[in-house]
Nucleic acid binder design. Structure first.
Length: 468
DNA sequence: GAGTTTGAAACT
DNA sequence: CAGTTTCAAACTC
């Protein structure tokens, strides 16, 4: 799995931050370290200027994709991938794309400009996305407007999986709408994508950010994980990989009419969680738990419902995965990246890792590892902590904050709303929640700019954000 | 691989 | 806020 790195330096982040090296997050370098302990993290934190390489990427600006380029990411082998695909629904999002405060030009305008100036190509001359492996990564231009319909379709799900996750196949959205799974997950489209006219690339950073911001303004939770897991400790979940965590629920619920919530059309089902009262589905038969309260059925049943296809292999991998999960205990892992992932449900979707993973999981496959889990830990535990004191000075929009993460917004479910455009209040984000963030920041050294102090200083840069 | 179905997202 | 349209994934053939 080769996830493209969020090469902000190329996209412009470098210039923005070049003068603020000291503010860049060292966590980047931390990515290179496979095993991290809390002490490691802390020590790194204390050495903000460790290495030049560390300065390259602003911690906050780190795109989820970044994970893929790091050594640690490399260790995200197939197994890890499987793990992610099977147990984690996806990215969290609070802010994979750091919000920007400076980029305010309209998205459309931006797009138009780009289009006009570079109607056929990668958009910006001279700019090129660096790929881990140029040989296998087509130039942006290639991927961009060509519209080569015959592009590899992501059907290479099985074997191709070795390469990583399948990505989007957008044709009209330019990968700048939530239709695009990559965009929705807060990650840049990369080589594996078969999208056309894609703007979800580092070279279009501003466009992406502006669009993201726009979408978030409309729906603060737009980039939040769709599936929320309540409180069960990760480890517990790992121990019951065959069970559907009753606490895990789709944040907004599905609205299925014909699929009976038995197919991946259903977001709940896809996320490996049962339907809940929040769902407006009809004829719900969600194997993970029905809206009416019926609990999850056995794994076998789920398999029947979804795909029996890769049962055997799956079983084998499940064990591996379960073991991996344990391996990812909070004690052994700290968020090694500012992926901003909050809590992804530690759910085992009905999809074998080797088989078709939930679409959304493709993403998770990329970053479902330690960060996600850890994040869950951090967010689920200390949440009870007093949030009232810290961060009071941070101007970062609440919704962009850690606190605004689904975890915290678990109660934000809009039961009957077709759409979720929860007002801030509805987000469960109260003014005094700010405190929580600081707390979290302290707990997660890899989010330097999360300290808030940085964000105010560099509103236009990635480091400004937030996780914000 | 093409076409259809589905439901979320976006739009009106 | 409800209805409609657009979109891309999921699915079927």
């Amino acid at each position: 799995m080769r996830r493209r790195c969020l090469t902000f330096e190329l996209a412009g982040g470098s210039t923005k931050n070049s003068n603020n090296n000291s503010k860049l997050h060292p966590s980047v370098s931390s990515l290179s370290s496979r095993k991290f302990t809390l002490d490691d993290k802390l020590s790194i934190l204390s050495k903000p200027e460790s290495s030049s390489s560390q300065r390259v990427l602003p911690g906050i600006g780190l795109h989820l994709n970044t994970l893929a380029t790091t050594p640690s990411d490399r260790m995200v082998t197939k197994e890890t991938l499987a793990f992610g695909k099977r147990f984690i629904s996806m990215p969290c999002s609070t802010s994979p794309f750091p919000p920007i405060t400076a980029v305010q030009k309209s998205v459309n305008k931006s797009l138009d400009v780009i289009k006009d100036e570079h109607p056929t190509g990668s958009g910006v001359p001279g700019l090129e996305v660096t790929h881990d492996d140029a040989s296998e990564a087509p130039a942006d231009g290639e991927n961009l407007m060509q519209g080569s319909p015959k592009k590899k379709k992501r059907k290479s799900e099985n074997g191709g999986e070795s390469e990583g996750c399948k990505r989007c196949n957008c044709k009209k959205s330019k990968c700048l709408k939530l239709y695009c799974e990559c965009f929705a997950a807060g990650i840049y489209c990369v080589e594996p994508c078969s999208c056309q006219g894609c703007f979800n690339k580092p070279i279009h950073e501003e466009t992406v950010l502006a669009t993201r911001k726009q979408i978030e303004s409309r729906n603060p939770l737009a980039f939040a994980p769709k599936v929320i897991r309540a409180s069960k400790p990760v480890q517990d979940m790992a121990e019951e990989t065959n069970k559907t965590p009753a606490s895990a629920r789709h944040k907004r619920g599905c609205n299925c009419k014909k699929s009976s919530c038995l197919k991946k059309y259903c977001e709940c089902f896809q996320g490996g969680v049962g339907c809940s009262a929040s769902c407006r589905c009809e004829g719900c038969k969600n194997a993970f738990g029905r809206k009416d309260g019926a609990e999850a059925v056995h794994a076998e049943d789920i398999m029947d419902v979804s795909e029996k296809q890769q049962d055997e292999q799956q079983d084998g991998q499940q064990n591996d995965i379960a073991q991996k999960n344990e391996h990812y205990s909070p004690e052994s892992i700290l968020p090694i990246t500012p992926s901003f992932e909050t809590c992804r449900p530690f759910v085992k979707p009905p999809f074998p890792s080797s088989g078709k993973p939930p679409r959304s999981s493709a993403l998770s496959a990329c970053y479902p590892t330690s960060q996600t889990l850890r994040r869950c830990e951090f967010l689920s535990k200390p949440k009870t902590v007093d949030h009232s004191n810290s961060l009071a000075n941070d101007d970062t929009p609440e919704i962009l904050r850690c606190d605004a993460s689904p975890n915290n917004s678990v109660k934000i479910i809009s039961p009957n709303g077709k759409r979720v455009s929860p007002p801030h209040g509805a987000l469960g984000i109260s003014p005094n929640r700010k405190g929580g963030r600081k707390l979290i920041l302290k707990s997660i050294p890899s989010f330097p700019s999360l300290n808030g102090d940085v964000s105010n200083e560099h509103p236009a840069s990635y480091s400004s954000d937030p996780l914000s």
